[in-house]
Structures are given as structure tokens and as C-alpha cells.
Design a protein around this nucleic acid. Structure first.
Lengths: 158, 158
DNA sequence: CCAATGCGGATATAAAATATCCGAGTTCAA
DNA sequence: TTGAACTCGGATATTTTATATCCGCATTGG
């Protein structure tokens, strides 16, 4: 079980977009992060479909955040890239075998699925507590402001 | 991102083993749950390597729990099947591109990796709070004791 | 000694993640 | 108005992972 690395790219891209005054093309974000352009474009499309970022076509086009950094959560980004499917997917094996439970009596999820869903909920709640603004602040603190400042300058120099 | 279905099988098997007085062969667990024997055997081997269950070879052999149900957690089982790798694996893309951070200055994890690890920790803590005994109790409550009783009887009739 | 069982490796198949390309639409400048 | 350059978007290969199976070996109990 592993989160697609597209999630990592998407998080970094959203952090970078907070420092851009104008739309940033996918190719430029790919160059900045040293990742393949075409594949990153796919992740950005997913973010766009999920409404996290907005795409602007045309010569001066690119991507911009749709909301202020404090309003975008890590959960939104994870769901945008990975989809909204549960991590633990119950296949109802309680209905199988010689002691299989009658499907008509399975309107309620089984105890195992409920327990796993509870744990997953804790993960999602923690992700929802993380905003892009928090991540920017964390990077800022790590680098004594040089990283974020450098980022803003690099994005400004077309 | 999805948890292998081996986790579901392993959880059900551990619940079933709580009701067995003698070692239960892999083939019998597979029959009980209506899943392919050969593949379930692989998951049971993983549980055995992790020390969650104990394997007894020979004619009267099979699997038994190594600890009381209240001492076995869902986290142990997830780790046994999926491995102990983190869900979010940071590939250090902050070191890439024109603004790449000097690798020598990356002894500390980046802010994004830290935030994701925090959320993952919440998930693991929640899983560690779930014991096999809890799951048995939950199933018992769902079925007015018929499911667990039936299970014990079926396992007793060799 | 024989039958039944778990263990490990080797192997095939199915699904998903990864990586890439080309077409449709939009914007800007001449 | 026209065209050209640039953008995103979806459809398409390739690689990796998960799923599923099988067979030989060691061990145990009858």
C-alpha cells in the first residue's frame, strides 16, 4: 500500500503556486521540480478537475490556485490525485463459505469494515487539518525564508 | 491507493482463529471464507513471519494465534501483510530542479513529508487501538451471538 | 513408512501506476 | 482578421505491482 508519487508532486506544485503572481504553465512547474512534464500534466489535470487549481488556456496561460492557501487542505489534494475510494475496501467475504451470512442481512457494514473505516477517518481528519499555508510556513521555517523567497523570484523571472 | 485485500482476509482469519480449540489448516480457513487456498496461504505465511500466528507442521498441523485476541491489534496485521513501508514515500524532489536544495542540508525531512507522516501516524494509532477481541465483540453484537457460536461449532466439527 | 500439513520459490495472469504522445481550443500579436 | 504560438486535455504505450496458482521440500503424526 503506497500513495502515488503524484501526491507528492501535487503538494509541491500547490506550494509553489502560492508564490506565483501569474498563471504557471505545467512545463514550468515540471522544470522547477525536476519531474517529467507530460506526467506532471496529468496530475495537474486531476487537480483541475477536483477544483483545487484552475487552468487558463492560451499563450499566457497556466495554472493558478482557486482558493487562498489557508483554504486548501492536504486531504483535497490526496483525494484529487488518488480518488475518493476508501483505503480498505470490504469485499464482504462474510457472505462467503459454508457459514455465509444472508446478503439481505448485510445492510449494515460488518464490524471489521467499520473498525477499519474508523481508522481511515482519523487519517482523513488529520489530512484535513493540514493546509497549504501550513506547508509554506513549515518550509519557510526550515530554510530561514530563503527557499520561499527564491521560489517567488524564480517564478517572477519568466 | 488501496489496501491489499489480503488484509481483509487476514483480519477475518484472525477472528476465526479465536474460536478454534485446535490448529486450523490453511485449506480449512480458505473454505470457511470462500477464498482461494493457495493465495490465502501466502497471507498466512506473512502473518506467521510477523509473529501474529504460529504455524504447526505435520498431519495435525495448522495455524494458531500466538497471543490472546485482546493483545493482537489491527495494526500488527496490516503491517504483517503490507509491510512496514510508509504510505507517503518522499522522493525528495526539493533537491531537484534549478532551486534544488543542497542534499547535505536535507538531514531533516521536508515540511511536506513531516505533515504527511503526522497524518499517517494518526491512522496507525487508530489501528493500534483496534484489537481482535474488539472485532469479535462487534460481530457478536451484530448477529446476536449466532455468528460467533456458529463459527466455533463449525471449527470444532473436523 | 505413509499421509497430511506448512514453507518457499518459480511462474502466469490481471490490474494499476508510470510515462508519453498528439489533437482541440484559446490567446496574443501582427 | 488572420495566423501562429502556446496552452490544456484525453487517448495511448510501457513498466511495475498485485493477484493467483502450482510444485518440490521439510516436518509431523499415525
Amino acid at each position: 500500500m503506497r500513495l502515488s508519487q503524484g501526491v507528492e508532486w501535487a503538494l509541491h506544485c500547490c506550494v509553489s503556486l502560492t508564490q506565483a503572481a501569474e498563471p504557471v504553465p505545467a512545463a514550468r512547474l515540471a522544470e522547477l521540480h525536476g519531474v517529467p512534464t507530460a506526467y506532471l500534466a496529468k496530475q495537474l489535470q486531476a487537480l483541475s478537475r477536483a477544483g483545487v487549481i484552475h487552468s487558463i488556456p492560451g499563450q499566457m496561460g497556466g495554472y493558478v490556485l482557486t482558493q487562498p492557501p489557508s483554504a486548501i487542505t492536504a486531504l483535497q489534494i490526496v483525494v484529487a490525485i488518488e480518488g475518493d475510494v476508501p483505503v480498505f475496501q470490504c469485499t464482504e467475504i462474510r457472505q462467503n463459505g459454508p457459514l455465509g451470512v444472508d446478503p439481505a442481512k448485510c445492510s449494515k457494514r460488518c464490524a471489521i469494515a467499520r473498525a477499519m473505516a474508523t481508522a481511515e477517518h482519523a487519517w482523513r481528519e488529520a489530512l484535513a487539518e493540514i493546509s497549504i499555508a501550513d506547508l509554506v510556513a513549515g518550509i519557510d521555517a526550515d530554510s530561514s525564508n530563503t527557499a520561499i523567497d527564491g521560489l517567488r523570484r524564480w517564478l517572477a523571472t519568466g
